[in-house]
Amino acid sequence: MENRIFIKLTEDRLSLGECYQFVQDNSCGGLALFVGTVRNNTENKEVKALEFSSYEPMAVKEMNLIAEKALELFGIEKIAIHHAIGNLEVSEVPVIISVSSAHRDAAFKACQYAIDTLKETVPIWKKEFFEDGEVWVNAHP
């Protein structure tokens, strides 16, 4: 199963081409990708910058769990889940997920499953910086 999964948690810039190349497979007819981008506003306040931090070993473990589960649930061929950590600016890319499958329906489902689950379970935290302060996203102090 190992060579069908490509997990990356990195301070480097993510590459759409790298995710695409990994899952591309001549037996597959369809390939679904999701690219998350940093939005320039949250509840009408302009976001100046973002910082992603993680519990690194556990985050990689959870990303692997999601990938294994996606292979199992949807019968897909390959999956790449890449997430950036550190400082990101508006329009930069914190996450890319790519999935290849013989059937496109499974590719879409697996891709959506992976991003939905990542947002629920992977220990990564986003801090947003505004003109007048900063806030941990999802936390409600």
């Binding site: 519990y55 990542l118 947002k119 629920e120 986003k126």
Partner: peptide, 9 residues
């Protein structure tokens, strides 16, 4: 580990 609500993605 203390894991506040996550916000990756």
């Amino acid at each position: 580990a203390i894991i506040p609500p996550v916000s990756g993605g």
